[in-house]
Design a protein around this nucleic acid. Structure first.
Length: 429
RNA sequence: GGAAGGAUGGCAGAGUGGUUUAAUGCGGCGGUCUUGAAAACCGUUGAGGGUGCAAGCCCUCCAGGGGUUCAAAUCCCUUUCCUUCCGCCA
């Protein structure tokens, strides 16, 4: 959520942000709703002031043993008026709140203005795509050749489309990657490892911005205030909801490997094959809480942690900065890392690292207290580091050999029980 | 699943219908004292909102929601969470 004061005092700033984001919302709606809210508040508070004064008078009269019945009758009428006026005010406040909750964050000045993903800007490249003699296979074909370890058919029977059953080496690779990522983040990058709930309530979903606007993207447990998390960003960022942190605690980082559940509503027909777009996948997430003056620096650090993983895995990638039209709801600025997929001859998103400014902190009420100063909202950041499924896809495609085997990145060998190359056995799982 | 007890400012903790503008302590901040510090002492210290150029004035907030009343931290209902006990189960 944005700062109400900012929207009131600098409507032109929000107006530009809404234009740049190609949002349908207009500032006029806000000004109308907020004007009504303020008028009603002034009215009801005047009445309440009158009531408070008269009530004290009653107390005084009663203490003196005097008759207060006339005053009481008058107060009865006043209270009825207050009740009616209060109800209207509550409604007007709720309308403003609702509008505010639906407004996206304001992009940073350094974010390129653009309409959609075609106007994102590449800012770095690492590694060079391998040359293949023959046409490289898609990762699901590579997996198929390796004893059918990625089994989409059985998954469809168990659950439906956009699920996978992985067997043997593939299941182990999932676990190996999660462990490798967590080890890097905790031992090298200084994150605190967390094992959070995978189910959270609506207040938590609202804190990070999934609700109220994007409910259709979530899986909700039937008739209950329970939602499956679409990313560990949700429980990790909300860890400090309602808390006041010490300034000395900033910056502070958390990491978790969790399953992520996404309904993928509206992505019908996209990435229908393979591991790219699943209803359920495992992802290691990084979340940082930062001092407002330091958050853009922290975004570079966070993105660096994600980049380091791709480099350790020897996977060619590029870094882009998302343009205003493609950025997520809560972000001030977002870098995407895109990994090279030889079969698609293109870079595909594998990590998204965002600075959310105080947008989530205001929703979730996460503050810190500077020495001798008033408490203020922290800045929150999050980034994937990394999802295991898309990483497996990249490893299989980039490491595939003519004979159907796959050369694994060296850093994974200890995590894979000493296996350096995945080789078909001729048997199917 | 059953029963009982709880939830009050950054923390601890008083407060059972009307001088509660929430006592007190701790912590924080400022000061006195001191060469400096500690200790001691003194003062100060919650959040949100409305109005105003400002000083200020006013309203709301005692887990969430609803109710009773002229008036609620306080009484009633309800939800959530915590603690203890009982039962059941891994």
């Amino acid at each position: 959520m944005l700062d109400l004061k900012l929207v009131q005092k600098q409507p032109e700033v929000l107006a530009k942000a809404l234009r740049d984001r190609r949002s349908k919302l207009t500032i006029d709606e806000f000004q109308e709703l907020d004007g009504r809210r303020r008028k009603l508040i002034a009215e009801v508070e005047t009445l309440k002031g009158q009531r408070n004064k008269a009530s004290q008078e009653v107390a005084k009269l009663k203490k003196e043993g005097a008759d207060a019945s006339a005053l009481l009758q008058e107060l009865g009428k006043l209270s009825d008026r207050i009740k009616a006026c209060d109800a209207e005010t509550v409604e007007a406040k709720a309308k403003v709140e609702e509008w505010m909750m639906g407004v996206p964050n304001i992009p940073d000045a350094s974010v390129p203005v653009g309409k959609d993903e075609t106007e994102n800007v590449e800012i770095a490249r690492w590694g060079s795509p391998r040359e293949f003699e023959d046409e490289p296979l898609a990762h699901w074909e590579v997996g198929q050749k390796l004893d059918g370890a990625l089994d989409f058919e059985r998954a469809a029977r168990l659950a439906g489309s956009r699920f996978v059953v992985s067997f043997g080496w593939a299941a182990r690779l999932d676990r190996a990657l999660a462990n490798f990522f967590l080890d890097q983040h905790t031992l090298k990058d200084g994150y605190i490892e967390v094992n959070p709930p995978f189910i959270v309530n609506s207040a938590t979903m609202t804190g990070t911005g999934q609700l109220p606007k994007f409910e259709e993207d979530l899986f909700r447990l039937r008739e209950q205030d329970y939602y499956l998390i679409p990313t560990a960003e949700v429980p990790l960022t909300n860890l400090h909801a309602g808390e006041v942190l010490d300034e000395a605690d900033l910056p502070r980082g958390y990491t978790a490997a969790t399953p992520c559940f996404r309904s993928e509503a509206g992505s019908a027909g996209k990435d229908t094959r393979g591991l790219i777009r699943m209803h359920q996948f495992i992802k290691v997430e990084m979340v940082r809480f930062a001092h407002p003056d330091d958050s853009f620096n922290q975004l570079e650090i966070l993105t660096g942690h994600a980049r380091a993983l791709l480099e350790a895995l020897e996977l060619p990638y590029r870094q882009i900065v998302l343009c205003t039209g493609d950025m997520g709801f809560g972000a001030v600025k977002t870098y995407d890392l895109e990994v090279w997929l030889p079969s698609q001859k293109t870079y595909r998103e594998i990590s998204s690292c965002s600075n959310c400014g105080d947008f989530q902190a205001r929703r979730a009420n996460i503050r810190f207290k500077p020495k001798g100063g008033k408490s203020q909202y922290v800045h929150t950041l999050n980034g994937s580091g990394l999802p295991t499924g898309r990483t497996i896809a990249a490893i299989l495609e980039n490491g595939q050999q003519k004979d159907g085997s796959v050369v694994l990145p060296k850093v994974l060998v200890p995590y894979m029980g000493g296996v350096e190359v995945l080789e078909p056995t001729g048997r199917q799982f």
